[in-house]
């Protein structure tokens, strides 16, 4: 197999990797906010459920979660869902990352000084307006560094989708490496992950800078 064919296949895999990455972020970032609300809820039951959820998601291997999400519908409920592989991967990733993001949101929200809520209350903002206009924008600035960390981890974690034989970049690299008995494809994949993360880090840095107009 020529190098260009190998690269083409890896790049195709990279496309799937990027898809997993972006879809996971799109779903887990808002879901994480919801879970963090649950975690901080006044209702003890909601709070406990959220806590258990976060604890399980963070306390068990993501690889195991991928397998469970993929196989549970059939083995537990006898359901056969066509074309379920990719959705299963996104569901598992989103559920897992939402737990991490929830804790990050919570730490950010809890770090906000009470004076911001009080000022908003006296000015007549509703609770929803206070959160959306006053609290959340400041929380986003505060949590950007830990979110960057998680995002970089996510780029690498996408490779776990190989357990479900999803044709993302790592799976492709492994297959080609086995067929060609060469370590080259794996090295190339490593380089691609690295470049991907350079771009992610650069984008997050830009975002941080953009929010640096206030302290």
């Amino acid at each position: 197999m020529s190098i260009s064919v190998m690269l083409m296949q890896l790049i195709k895999g990279l496309g799937v990797t990027a898809e997993i990455f972006f879809l996971t972020l799109i779903f887990s970032l808002p879901l994480g906010l919801l879970v963090s609300f649950g975690r901080m809820s006044k209702n003890a039951l909601v709070r406990t459920i959220s806590k258990i959820y976060i604890s399980i998601m963070r306390g068990t291997p993501l690889m195991l979660q991928l397998i469970v999400v993929y196989f549970a519908p059939f083995y537990v409920f006898g359901l056969k869902i066509p074309n379920y592989r990719f959705p299963a991967i996104i569901i598992a990733f989103a559920l897992n990352y939402a737990a991490y993001f929830a804790e990050i949101y919570r730490s950010g929200i809890e770090s906000m000084p009470a004076g911001q809520y009080e000022a908003a209350k006296v000015l007549g903002y509703t609770k929803a307006q206070t959160f959306m206009r006053i609290i959340l924008p400041q929380v986003i600035k505060r949590i950007l560094p830990p979110v960057t960390n998680e995002t970089i981890t996510l780029v690498k974690d996408t490779s776990l989708a190989f357990v479900l034989a999803q044709a993302e970049m790592f799976t492709m690299a492994k297959q080609i490496a086995a067929k060609e008995t060469s370590i080259m494809p794996l090295m190339a994949a490593g380089l691609f992950y690295y470049i991907f993360n350079l771009i992610v880090a650069f984008a997050m840095e830009r975002l941080e800078k953009a929010l640096n107009y206030y302290k």
């Binding site: 004076g115 911001q116 000022a119 924008p137 400041q138 600035k141 206030y214």
Partner: peptide, 12 residues
């Protein structure tokens, strides 16, 4: 209206 000791302006 209320004016606070430590202002509590919205920094953003």
């Amino acid at each position: 209206g209320l004016v606070f000791q430590n202002f509590n302006l919205f920094p953003h």
